[in-house]
């Protein structure tokens, strides 16, 4: 599923990285603990998190994660946008709970990592 399709499926706002939104993602992982994200070996992954800070973007950069969805109405900062743009990562803001986002993405065919 393309990142752009994920955003429209969720009715969520793409904050930056529209150029990257044609990329396909197959798997999803939901976590506020970046240490858990850094243990994953899966590619083509979308990360759902309520942790809106630079380290979420850095974690995605190191783990080759092309898209982060910030749940629970967490807002992306200008600094996060700059870091994400540099690494070609799409940032999406979603006003509802992580659970709701997971349910919607699962229905759309996004698979769990494990």
């Amino acid at each position: 599923m393309k990142i752009s399709e994920i955003a429209s499926h969720l009715g969520a706002v793409v904050v930056c990285g529209r150029d990257n939104a044609d990329r396909d993602v197959e798997f999803g992982f939901a976590s506020d603990l970046m240490s858990d994200v850094l243990t994953l070996e899966t590619d083509n992954l979308v990360l759902l998190t309520g942790l809106a800070n630079n380290q979420a973007v850095r974690t995605a950069e190191m783990s080759d994660i092309p898209c982060i969805i910030f749940v629970r109405n967490k807002k992306v900062t200008q600094e996060m946008i700059e870091l994400a743009t540099e690494s070609n990562i799409t940032l999406i803001e979603y006003p509802f709970s992580m659970f709701k986002a997971v349910v919607q993405l699962s229905k759309a065919g996004i698979k769990p990592v494990f």
Binding site: L33, S35, A56
Partner: peptide
Amino acid sequence: EMGFGAGMG
């Protein structure tokens, strides 16, 4: 709070 400190690093 930064998303670390779980003894996994």
